[in-house]
Simulated assay, not measured.
Amino acid sequence: MPCFNEEDTIPIFFKVIEKIVKSMKNINTEYWFIDDGSSDHTLTAIHKLNADYPDVVHFISFSRNFGKESALYAGLKAATGDYVVVMDVDLQDPPELLPKMYDYLASGEFDCVGTRRTNRDGEPPIRSFFADQFYRLINSISSTNIVNGARDYRMMTRQMVDAIMSMTEYNRFSKGIFSWVGFKTKFIEYHNVERVAGNTSWSFWKLFKYSIDGIMDFSDMPLSIASWTGILSFITALLGLVFIIVRAITVPNSSVSGWASLVCIMLLIGGLQLLCLGIVGKYIGKIYLQSKNRPIYIVKEKK
C-alpha cells in the first residue's frame, strides 16, 4: 500500500481489511505500508499499527517523496507472499473484492486478477474526459494494451511479481508494466468509490505529466510524429519555393509583400522545430536518468 499524506485513512483501512481477511480461510497475511515521504502524520499512524501488530504490519519509509511508482516497486520488492495485492489505503479500491480475487487465482486458471472502474462518478468531467482520451491514444500507438479504467489494484501470483521485479527501469509506469509482462489476467469491474477520508494528492497537472510519461515509456510514436512533421514542413517549403519561382517567371512584375504573414510562417516553422526537439529531448532525458543508475528510492526506515 503506497501512502502519501494518508494519516486519516490508514486506521480505517486496516480495520476494514482485517475484517475481510479474517473471513477468508487458511490465509496468512502481511501488510507492507510504503510511506512515500509524507508531510503529515502518516508515519506515526503506521508506527502505531506496527507496534500493535508487529508480526503482521511492516513498513518502509522513504527519505523523501519519490512518487507512487517508486512506492509500488518498493512494496512489491518487500512482499514475500505467494500472492501479492497492490491497493490504495483510501478504500477507493473495494476490499470486498479480495475473496473473489483470491478464488480466481487459487483455481490456477489466472496469474493476475485486476480491477477496472466502469464509471468515474464523483470525478470532475474534464478529468474523466482526458482520462478516456489517454487510454484511447496510448492503445492506438502502443503494442502494449492498457485496459481503460484499469486500476493498480490487483492480486498477482509470485511468478508474475518476480517478472515485474526483473524490470528495474528508472522510469516506471506500472499499468503498462503489468500488461507488458504478460500472464493471464482476469478483470473484475466495479463502480467508482469515493475516498473514505482525506483528499487526493493527484492534481490534474500531475495526472497529465504521468500520462505523458506512460506514453513515452511504452511507445516511440512521438519520435515518429516529430520525423513526419519535419518531412511535411520540408515538402511544404519545397512546394512554396516552386510556386514562387513559377510565379516570378510567368508574372514578371509580381512582388513579394506581406511581411506579417512571412513572420508568422517563420514562427510556425520555428515552433515546429522546437516541438520536435522537445520530443527528442524528452526521450534523451529519460536515457540520461537511466544511465545515472540512481536508486529508484532511498529507505530512511524499515521494519
Rank of each mutant, 00 (worst) to 15 (best):
L268I: 04
S174Q: 10
S63K: 15
L91S: 04
Y288A: 08
K68Y: 03
M221K: 12
V86P: 00
V84Y: 00
M165I: 10
P125K: 12
I279W: 01
R120C: 04
Y288D: 13
V256G: 12
N145V: 07
N65A: 11
A74M: 01
A248V: 00
K300S: 13
K286Q: 14
E169R: 09
I46W: 06
S291Q: 12
V56D: 09
P11K: 06
S291M: 13
V113N: 04
I177P: 00
L232V: 11
T168V: 07
I141D: 06
M165C: 09
S257C: 05
G214K: 01
F187A: 03
F13E: 05
D162A: 05
D36M: 04
T185P: 10
L262G: 14
D40E: 07
I231C: 03
T115Q: 08
S291W: 09
V113H: 04
A78H: 04
M160S: 01
F183C: 07
G176F: 01
Q92P: 00
H47C: 05
K206C: 02
N5P: 06
I296P: 04
R158G: 07
D52Q: 14
L49Q: 07
D93F: 02
L223G: 03
L238R: 07
V85S: 11
Y135F: 15
F110D: 01
P95F: 00
S166Q: 15
E30M: 03
F208M: 11
L262N: 10
K206R: 14
D217E: 12
G240T: 03
P295S: 03
P54H: 00
N50L: 00
S179C: 10
S254C: 03
I269W: 06
A131F: 02
N5Q: 11
P95I: 01
G114N: 05
T229F: 02
L232Y: 09
A260E: 14
V280M: 09
S211K: 05
D121N: 13
Y102D: 11
I231K: 13
A163Q: 10
D121I: 14
L137V: 12
